[in-house]
Structures are given as C-alpha cells and as structure tokens.
Design a protein around this nucleic acid. Structure first.
Length: 854
RNA sequence: GCGGGCGUGGCGAAACUGGUAAACGCAAGGGACUUAAAAUCCCUCGCCGCAAGGCUUGCGGGUUCGAGUCCCGCCGCCCGCACCA
C-alpha cells in the first residue's frame, strides 16, 4: 500500500501556485472584496505552534472565501522592531538589523512551507525605512493636529527593559514582557492623545457586532467612562481652589474630609518646607500597585492643616488630607470623602475620628433610625440630612446638586475616563526614530518633512548599557532646522505598537510611495476578518482603533474601524515533563513505557508528567512545527489544528492527535488513488437509478456541502472536519455492487476533495488533478448543493411516553397526525408504557416527535 | 470588590430558535491479515444489569407534554479589571 508522499506533492503545488501567482490580487470592483488578516508575527527566529494555528485559521478563511467568489486580500508581513533584537545584539554581538532580517528569511521559508495563500508581493517589514518613514510623517501630522504632544509626567519605568511602558503594558504592576515590578519615574515623554477619542472609541464598540463580546467588554472597562461632577472647594487662607471629581455629588452633605494624592501639586508644594509630609509622600510612592500590595495596604492619611469650605453649608470646614489611596492618575487626583456611603472613606474616617453622617436612607427606613456601622451604605434610597436635597432619590439629588453647584460657580456635571493618553516614547534603539530635534534656543522642533526619513543608524554599539542612539558618536548631532545652530536629535524611538497600528492599511498598497494609496485603502478596508490572540484585546486592538481615527482626522483615510470582524484563537497546550531533579524536559527527551509511565530517553530515569499548559520555551513543553512538517507534511499539521477544538478554545497538542490526522490524510489519498473499481469520469451524467444505499450517500454529499458551508461561515471548523470525515466514512462503506455506486463514489470524491481544499490545499490539489480536472482547485468555485436532496422522503420520529423515549417510527415525510399517532401507538413498548391508564393527549411535532401523555 | 464566561463519557468534543444526549475523533479492548511488526480492515466501547430494563449533561428546586438548552438558589473552575472617588 503506497503511502502518500507529501514531500514531493506539497512542494510541487507550492511551486505551481507561486509561478502562476495564484494568490496575487488587485482591486477589482466587479467582485465583492474580502480582506482576511492574521496578526503579523514578531520575527523571533522560528515559527511556533501558535503561528501554525493562527495562520491555518486565516488561510482556511481566505481559500474558502476565494472559492466563494470573493476578491480576497490575504497578506503577510513582519512586526520587526522590538527589544529581543537588541538583546540578541548584546548576547551574540549581531546587529539587530541583521538578526531581524535573518529571522525573517527563516520564518518566511517556514510559512511558505505551510502552503499559506499569501499575496507575497505585499510583504512588508516595519523595521525598513520604506515603512517607518511614513510613520514619521504621520507623527508630524499628529503633532500639527494636536494629537501628539510632549509632557513631563510620572511614567512606568521597566528596570529590566530600561524603558518607559504605556499603562496598557503594565499588568498587575509589572512589565508585560519582563515581569519585573515597574517604577514610577518623572520624565518628559511623547504622548498620543487617545483620550480625544475616548467617547467615540467606547460608543463605536456597540457597532462591532462581529467582535467577541468579551473583547468589547475589556475595551469598555479599559476606557472606563463614569458620570459625575467636578467640584471646586475654596480653601481657607489660600487663593487657589481644590478641584475634586466625584460620582456621588448627591452625598455632598455627608462630606467630612477631602483627600489629595501624594503627587498632587498642593501636596508637593506643602512638602517643600515640611519634612514630615515629604517622608509621607515618599512612603506613598514606595507603595506598589500590585494586587497584593493594594489589598494589604492600610489606608493612611496626613493632615495638611488646610481646611476646605463646604460649598453649601456656611461655616462648615473639611480637613484636607494627603492620602495613600488617592491616585493622581485618576480624575483630578483629589476627592471629597463621604464615609457613610463609601467603604474606603468609612475606613479612613473611623481611623482618623471623622464624622459619619448618613445622607441616603433606604426607601422603607425611618430616617431617624438609620445609622452606619462598619459597612457603608451604597444602595438606592432617599436623601436625608441634606437640606434642599432631602426626600429626593439618589438620581434626582445628583441632578439637583450639580445644578446648585453650577449656580454657585463651584462645579458642574462631568464625565471622567480611566483611559490615559498613550505614552509612545521608548528609550530603546531598535524602533522608529521620533522625528524631532531639541534646540537650546528654539525648543522642540519637528524634523522638516523634506528631511524625512530620519534613518536609524545601523553602525551602533551595545558595549554600554542604555540607549545606543545616545552613545552614537555623530547621529544625534544635528543643526536646528529653525535657527541652524547645533542641536540634538530626539533619541527616543516609538513604542512598537505604533507600527502595528497601521500595517493592515499599508497592506492595501504596500508598495505605494506615500503611506497609502487612498483608492486601494477605500477598496479594501476595513479588514473583514482579523484573527489573532486574545492578549491584544486592549493593547493592539485599541491602539489601532485610535490610529484609524487619528489618520482619518489628518486626511489619510476614510475609515474609523479597522477590523469589522475579529476572531480570537485559543492557545496550543502540551503536557509538561520534569526529570527527578525538577528540570523541565522537551517532549522528545521523554520515552513512554508499556505500562504508560514516562522515562528519560537517554538514561531511563523516571519523568514526572504534568498537566497540559500553554506551550512555552521556559517549560520546554513545545513542539517545533518544522519537525511536524518534515514528519507528516503541512496538510496533516493543518488538519490537526483545525480538528477537535473550536478555534477560540485552547487545544492540546498530542502525538496521538497528529497521528490520527495523518491516518486520515492517507485514507483520502488511497480513496482516490487506489479505488478498487473503475469509476466514471467526474461530472458524468447521473445514472437512471440509484440503489437505496447509493441514494443515501448521494443525498449525504449534498447535505455535507450545505452543512460544511454553514460551519465555515460560522467558524465551526472542527464540525466541518467532522462532517467531511462522516461523508468519507459513508462513501468508503458503499458496496461497489450497488446500483449507481460507482457514479456516487466519484461524486463523493469530487465533493470531499473540494470541501477539504481550504484545509489541506496541497493534497486536495493533487487529488483534484488525479480526478481528471484540468484546472487548479485553487481556481475552482466552491461546490453547490441541490436543496431538493437535503430533505429525506422518510423520517425517523422519536416516540415518547410522558417525555421518556420508548421507540422510534419510520414514516413518510409530512405524514398526517392520525398516521403518526397510530404508528406510534402500534409500538409494543408504547402500549406497554401506556398500560391500563387512558391516553390523556398526544403531542405531535411533525417529522420530529410524538409524545403520548397518560 | 466589579464585570464576564464555563461545568456533557477515560479524553478532545457534537446536539439549529426546548424535541431520539454523546455525531466526529482520540484512547482502550477483542478479532482478521502477517513468520513477526508496522500499516490496513472488521467488531465492542456513557453507567448499572446475564437479560428485560433502569439511570445519566456539577448539585438542589421550578416552568413545560417534553430541559444539556429557559428561570431561581447553591458548588466548582477559568478570564478581565481593580485603593477608579
């Protein structure tokens, strides 16, 4: 029995697709367009299983849509700037550019070997000047539009990466890549004004119907809109006023203190001649922002001695504290405390002996009896102890309090967002240079457009720690474009998330001399289906949404939303292995014994097998796609990652699983190439009569085409695979002696090959040719089904007695109720279950179920 | 604390708007072919039971002729955000 020679076949068809430019596309208004994109990879060196899954999903969609008649754009590129290249440079003394380009070459070859239907003519790498030069121009335009600005602020400093991180890149107080606790530093940094679009980015989430609900929720939470009021408290003995933000302006009569953040300007001013306060502020700054630190931290305050005047109560004064739980980054960095209705304020008030005045009482409570114990009351109710607000609901009181504040010039309604502007400066070398020049006389001067691009020098040294651009002998020395005197180039580079915020639009016209060919972008954008990991739910996916709006405002493009559809794929997991000393082992270092236990291949010592976890280099539970491809071929690997688990769920890589996929690959091969009987050519006319078994399979072909199409439309790829296997099973079990079976078998082969085409393109292309077709399967339309064959003439109907299954009856489709009922009652099981008691009623759902109620 | 999701065989999973639970695959067991192995093919495979039959979708209730699916209350697991004013 000949095994399928995937090595020969797969490379043969890849060469044919490449030489025919099968997947090269251009704008064509005669066809509906479909833009399918997978998140482009960072060129780390080699592709991993996560890439295989991601790109297999995308390729399936691309090939399916192409077969369905869409003009499909399916490009690939490289997210090529980033820190690993610098680390490699330090460790191996290879320039980052060289390291990156070599990795790209390797990974491009690996992706080609997978047979993905990319239009390689659109390939791009973000580290090349012909890409990032456009980004520098965008920055200048953003600057002009007020969407980019420079500001001194407290930023997150990653001590390992030696750079600043955006808020989105700090997870539980730690750097998203380094995992190290971040420090707060005050630095002058470039920001993108993402907050200008806060409301729009939030509102538009509702329109992203083909995004997973949880990604939309995560973005909504991240933007964090809240409605409340800004209030101004005049301060005794000072001319300035204290601005606070609150969502509970209705509780103003319950206020008993104000609190400001440790980094609030007033706190810093007072600290100048108050050593005790300086110490307290330092203590607050030391406090981590990790979950553990926050939970264990005690509420602490420092009385500044300043007194704030209550806006409505003549003579009432509130002490102003510096408090460790007030964040400078949220709202105005100052609050008023109403202990009765906020747990944190209550804890604080109890500790410092402040008043606790209830001002909201639950509907059915007698106001006089309502007191606060250890728990603040945060529920609904009516206002008490609140002069002009008394008797109002919380909602009414919020409105009235805001109205009165505004009338008194002491505040107004306000909307606040959690979202902060996007800090894009990075003190790193391998990134896009920020095109500005610092001049001692003229200040910050943008690089004139005619001087773009600002090229990243490649002759850099990593001998000293820190940013090589700082240490470069000449690069930063430049004349001021305004006054001509010696000045200094900005040595910060952009966050690499800037490059990934517009690459998808660049793909529409990847070779254009300007950033975008507007007509091409208008034709292709938005991306119809974007596929990638959930880890970018907030980061990349939010930045890109902002970037499109910023580009639109600057006249580059006309779209707001970059990704109309989003699919987030799950991770690939694998068992973990440790030897006796607890060291992690690679799967290939483990051998399995007869009794099911595992030992080390080299010395036979026992191995501890751990549960499946997501593949990671540190735990060595990785499988190199290249090994799999050389052992089983790309198609088998592709089939395996599509089988069993739905795309959005984590799935486990197992040796048995890939073996199962390999078995099926060979079954298909044999079914077409080693058929026992002579089959008529594809497309022969249907024989006069089909035996009942042949007719059943004939119908199944059409049912399968219908079902697989629907499954692919809904991204239920594992179900589509199952249905194709079902059809294969049925076709194989058809006996050649049956009337018409040869014709049906050939029809089934044709259908199976076409249906499996987007999943296993090389094998399908080969079998398609062997079935006698003169065209490429890649150029062949998706099969159609005959709706008349989807419905059977007879149906099997379940018969229940009191909801319990007692048997089934086979009846002609659409039999009358009487026929159905009498057939059901005739079943011995049914009459036994009914017994002596009379039938009360019979529920009949035509063609589905008969339920006899006794 | 807030928000969201998920609990189905030994395992991955199916089950359209409530209508025959476990399709498809993996693993396992038995058999055929073979000197032998691999490959391949056939059979069994939710649980209890020789069988007839009974039971079964995390647990407890409810709605319904009928619930994996809807409602209420628990239990468990996972994810996101979090001193957010």
């Amino acid at each position: 029995m000949a095994r399928y020679n995937f090595k020969e076949t797969e490379s043969k068809w890849r060469d044919i697709w490449a030489s025919r430019e099968s997947f090269k596309v251009r704008e064509d208004t005669a066809k509906p367009k479909y833009y399918v994109l997978e998140m482009f990879p960072y060129p780390s060196g080699r592709i991993h299983m996560g890439h295989v899954r991601n790109y297999t999903l995308g390729d399936l969609v691309a090939r399916y849509k192409r077969a369905c008649g869409f003009n499909v754009l399916h490009p690939m590129g490289w997210d090529a700037f980033g820190l690993p290249a610098e680390n490699a440079a330090i460790q191996n003394r290879v320039p980052p550019a060289t390291w990156t380009r070599e990795n790209i070459a390797t990974m491009r070859g690996q992706l080609r070997n997978m047979g993905f239907s990319y239009d390689w003519s659109r390939e791009l790498a973000t580290c090349e000047a012909d890409y990032y030069r456009h980004e520098q121009k965008m920055f200048l335009d953003f600057l002009g539009a007020g969407l980019a600005y420079r500001k001194e602020s407290w930023v997150n400093w990653d001590p390992v990466e030696q750079t600043v991180l955006a808020n989105e890149q700090v997870i539980d107080g730690r750097g998203w890549r380094s995992g190290e606790l971040v420090e707060k530093r005050q630095l002058s940094q470039w920001f993108f004004r993402i907050t200008a679009f806060a409301d729009e980015l939030l509102e538009a989430l509702d329109g992203l119907e083909r995004w997973p609900e949880r990604v939309r929720l995560m973005q909504a939470n991240w933007i964090g809109r809240s409605e409340g009021a800004r209030m101004l408290f005049s301060l005794k003995g000072r001319s300035d006023r204290l601005e606070v933000y609150t969502t509970r302006q209705d509780t103003i009569f319950g206020a008993s203190f104000c609190a400001i953040a440790a980094n609030h300007p007033i706190a810093l001013e007072l600290a100048e001649d108050n050593a005790e306060l300086t110490d307290f502020i330092a203590e607050c700054n030391r406090l981590g922002t990790s979950e553990a630190a926050i939970e264990t931290a005690e509420k602490k305050g420092f009385d500044t001695g300043i007194r704030a005047r209550h806006p409505f109560v003549e003579g009432k004064e509130l002490p102003v504290y510096v408090a460790n739980f007030v964040l400078m980054e949220y709202g105005t960095g100052a609050i008023f405390g109403c202990p009765a209705h906020d747990q944190r304020d209550l804890d604080f008030a109890r500790k410092y002996g402040l008043d606790v005045i209830p001002v909201v009482a639950p509907e059915d409570t007698d106001a006089g009896d309502f007191t606060i114990g250890d728990e603040a009351y945060t529920g609904e109710g009516r206002l008490i102890n609140s002069e002009f607000l008394n008797g109002m609901t919380v909602e009414e009181a919020k409105n009235e309090a805001a109205r009165r504040l505004e009338a008194a010039g002491a505040g107004e309604k306000a909307i606040n967002y959690r979202l902060r502007d996007w800090g894009v400066s990075r003190q790193r070398y391998w990134g896009c240079p920020i095109p500005v020049i610092h001049c001692a006389d003229c200040g910050v001067v943008p690089v004139p457009e005619t001087d773009l691009p600002v090229l990243l020098p490649e002759d850099v040294s990593f001998d000293k720690p820190g940013n090589p651009l700082e240490h470069h002998p000449t690069w930063k020395q430049v004349d001021c474009p305004k006054c001509g005197r010696p000045a200094r180039r900005e040595t910060d580079t952009f966050d690499t998330f800037v490059e990934s915020s517009w690459y998808f639009a660049r793909f529409c016209s990847a070779q254009a001399g300007t950033a975008f060919d507007r007509a091409a972008v208008d034709y292709w954008m938005p991306v119809d289906q974007y596929i990638g990991g959930i880890e970018h739910a907030v980061l990349h996916l939010l930045y890109s949404r902002f970037f499109m709006r910023a580009l639109k405002q600057c006249g580059y493009i006309g779209v707001d939303e970059p990704f109309a559809g989003l699919m987030t794929q799950g991770m690939i997991c694998h068992e973990t292995y440790r030897d006796q000393s607890g060291k992690w082992l690679y799967p290939e270092e483990v051998r399995w014994l007869e009794d099911g236990s595992a030992v080390k291949t080299d010395d036979g010592t026992p191995v501890t097998v751990g549960p499946a976890e997501s593949m990671s280099k540190s735990k060595r539970n990785v499988v190199d796609p290249e090994h799999i491809i050389s052992q089983y071929g790309a198609d088998t690997a592709r089939l395996f990652v599509l089988s069993d688990s739905p795309p959005d769920r984590d799935s486990e890589w197992t040796e048995a699983g890939i073996e199962g996929a390999w078995r099926y690959t060979n079954r298909l091969w044999r079914m077409v190439t080693e058929c026992a009987v002579e089959l008529p050519p594809s497309g022969s006319p249907k024989p006069e009569s089909l035996s009942p078994p042949a007719d059943t399979v004939h119908r199944l072909i059409h049912k399968t085409i219908a079902a697989v199409s629907q499954d692919l439309d809904r991204f239920h790829f594992n179900k589509a695979v199952a249905r194709i296997r079902e059809l294969t099973n049925a076709a194989e079990s058809l006996k050649p002696s049956e009337d018409g079976s040869a014709w049906v078998l050939r029809e089934a082969q044709d259908a199976i090959v076409r249906l499996i085409g987007p999943m296993m393109p090389h094998l399908a292309e080969e079998l398609w040719q062997r079935l006698g077709h003169g065209t490429l399967l890649a150029d062949t339309a998706w099969p159609e089904y005959d709706p008349a064959l989807l419905e059977e003439d007879s149906v099997t109907i379940a018969v229940q007695v009191n909801g319990k299954l007692r048997g089934t009856v086979d009846l002609p489709r659409d039999s009358s109720r009487e026929e159905a009922e009498s057939a059901a009652m005739a079943l011995p099981n049914v009459s036994r279950a009914v017994g002596e008691s009379g039938v009360r009623k019979v529920i009949i759902v035509p063609n589905r179920i008969i339920n006899v109620v006794v």
